[in-house]
Design a protein around this nucleic acid. Structure first.
Lengths: 154, 154
DNA sequence: TTACGTGCAAATAATTTGCAGTCCC
DNA sequence: GGGACTGCAAATTATTTGCACGTAA
């Protein structure tokens, strides 16, 4: 896959680290996840290596490429655990494939119709001015804006 | 593009306002879908009967309740055809279940975490003020705002 | 009539789960 | 050492598809 959208200028968490693995380990501990080999390695791919949106399958292939010994089932489990711990956010696209992205910053998404490509929109580029009050007994946990794109004829 | 209303602009003389089935039939014809028994019946459930968001399964149960003879496969086919024709919009929630809602008005959604409940937010209640320019070669086809709700402890 | 639509059941695709073996604290 | 974690394969769930038959134009 072309690194078109993986090429980026990095966020705050992308601290030119002395030891990314150590930071991932800490990050995991902080949210109560035991830093096992698989989790640390996958965390490294997700948080230190600049990967930003992945599907289970993409992460699995990435892991294979990096010689990380991990099974697809563990990928799924890990993605879910990370998401429950708040390290990732889930983004479900039409087409029944779930994507996950690093959750350390607020942002929204461009989604290209047809392809399954996702491009970040920095939070400050979208202004959701007015939000309705949630129904009685509920509170807003998160607001997602998905801007669907269509290729221009040409 | 967003001028679709249930109230149509008189196509022929055989418009019978007050006869929902006829209106559905016309609506289908207008988008090039042959108005078969199943499509008209499902269209009636979706457009005339006030149903607004349904999953395939929900629509199937609704159809059974209304004694509409239709198979689940046809439900899926029909939902997709309606969506491609612009009569419905697809909304994919975390949980790998697709929902569809009538597309005749702009609106956004509250989604209750855990449950698979969807509540409409009228377009005028959300103000997406600033939108970023789409990447070169793409145009915005649609903007979806999903407000996730969490039940308040009590 | 005749191409398009429908129903059934089997096929896919994405994701989850049960359980035996493994590893971290 | 002991409970949490992993891997495998089988199970689930949502959706699609192939093909014989039915039906609208």
């Amino acid at each position: 896959m072309s690194g078109l959208t993986t090429q980026d200028q990095g966020y705050g968490s992308n601290v030119r680290p002395g030891c990314p693995f150590h930071e991932v380990r800490q990050k995991l501990r902080r949210v109560g996840l035991r830093p096992t080999r698989q989790r640390v390695s996958l965390g490294w791919v997700l948080f230190a290596k600049g990967q930003r949106h992945v599907s289970a399958e993409m992460l699995y292939e990435e892991a294979m490429k990096e010689r990380i010994p991990v099974s697809l089932a563990t990928i799924y489990n890990t993605l879910r655990q990370f998401t429950e711990a708040g390290l990732l956010r889930e983004l479900t696209l039409d087409g029944a494939k779930a994507y996950f992205d690093t959750a350390d910053h607020d942002h929204h998404h461009f989604v290209v119709e047809g392809e399954n490509r996702v491009i970040d929109i920095p939070a400050q580029d979208i202004d959701v001015a007015a939000l309705p009050a949630p129904p009685e007994g509920y509170e807003i946990s998160r607001v997602d804006v998905v801007v669907r794109l269509r290729k221009v004829e040409g």
